[in-house]
Design a protein around this nucleic acid. Structure first.
Lengths: 224, 224
DNA sequence: CAGAGAAAGCTTAAAGGAACCTTAGATGGA
DNA sequence: TCCATCTAAGGTTCCTTTAAGCTTTCTCTG
């Protein structure tokens, strides 16, 4: 799950990004409204967290432009205490929820979870493919009674593959969706993690395998 | 949208059927697993809602048989609270989603909507000509139950020919459309790939062939 | 109109290389 | 110290391309 977090206060931003990443989200952080708009339009996020008070463009401005551009990504607005008009304007522009600063990190996490879930129309929190199940709460990959607890990146890769089973995902796709829009890394790192996951699948004795197609990408495949 | 609803508790069934019909679904209600299986196999439904606890056959049994019979209709399972194994077994057998009883009607409706929509989204893009289908997501060329996974260039060539069936494409056309405007290669490489594709068609026993017209180009042709 | 010759089309085998895979070890945070 | 992540290097595989020899079709000439 990939989030965009727009907030101009640096200390605040770092704390929140840490917390989100700890909970297995991929987070891109930006520090003003102009960047927020640009990233939101180009980055393919599952959710966006927008501070209202930002340099260059306000959160509500960004939100309004996004919705006008037909981008429906769920948005959580952060407002300072008491700014009731902003809040109402925000919801009017198509925000999914708002949270008043200061807030507890746990509260933010709960809202983000709720926001994503709502958008997914109550999708179950177990993803399933072939003889495998991926528990999105505990990050466990299971086959029957066998379980493995996946590290963050392996989990994200597995989730991505399972959500898109049947589709081929290129190393590019994987790189931008997991490592973020602007990353130094290259296809090599993706190969490494695909290799790790293959080892997990083998260890579980699963019938599922990761199929590579030269020049196209990767997809999950369940042997009969 | 036509749904099958299998549930042995009569009062429950009536309430749910009412709600679904109010939301413009056409609903057939059955009251045990044997009927559920029979109707599901013969009725051409857009979605199926299966209670797990039912007389004669359990919901999971029904689901398993359906999937083994190659029927991919999306299935929503209803489980009693806490029956975790049933749930996992269900997802394992190919359920699309589950819902624990008791549930709010609104939630059921949301899940049904999501399930049907998901199915729409995943409907693969398929090009057809003669007795062949080309799956644009999996790069598979099929005739009936026979499948071949095409390498990238063979796939691109096949796609080009299918999209332009009835037209003659010159080697020039093919070269610039697949290998790009500025390429070192010449017509020879096109002949090679046409040859490869012909071999694929023969292997599939297809009635489709690639017809060459000297000095003009190539086109697909389906024998009667 | 027959036949030679040329051009276009076709097929196959094999070389070459890019894409892919795996592993060991370095790095760095909890 | 352990675990997750990343880097780098060597090994492998499969796709693409080359190249060569073959067949078919057209055209020109006697």
């Amino acid at each position: 799950m990939k989030l965009l977090y727009a907030e101009d206060e640096l200390a605040m931003s770092e704390a929140v990004v840490d917390a989100l990443e700890f909970h297995k989200y991929t987070v891109d952080a930006v520090y003003d409204g102009a960047d927020a708009l640009y990233y939101a339009q180009h980055g393919d996020y599952d959710g966006i967290i927008l501070d209202i008070m930002m340099p260059k463009r306000s959160g509500t401005e960004v939100l309004k432009e996004l919705r006008q551009a037909g981008i429906g990504t769920p948005v959580l607005l952060l407002t300072a205490k008491g700014e009731v008009e902003d809040r109402i304007a925000g919801l009017d522009c198509g925000a999914d929820d708002y949270l008043t600063k200061p807030f507890a990190l746990g509260e933010l996490l709960a809202r983000v979870r709720a926001m994503l879930r709502r958008r997914e129309d109550f999708k179950p929190d177990i993803l399933s493919f072939g003889d495998l199940q991926l528990n999105m709460q505990s990050y466990e990959l299971s086959r029957g009674s066998e379980h493995v607890l996946l590290p963050k990146l392996e989990y994200q890769l597995m989730e991505l593959l399972m959500r898109n089973h049947g589709l081929y995902l290129s190393t590019e796709d994987i790189l931008t969706k997991i490592w973020g829009y602007e990353t130094e890394s290259d296809a090599g790192i993706v190969w490494v993690y695909l290799s790790y996951l293959r080892k997990r699948l083998a260890a579980l004795g699963s019938t599922v395998s990761i199929r590579a197609k030269r020049g196209i990408g990767y997809t999950l495949e369940a042997a009969p």
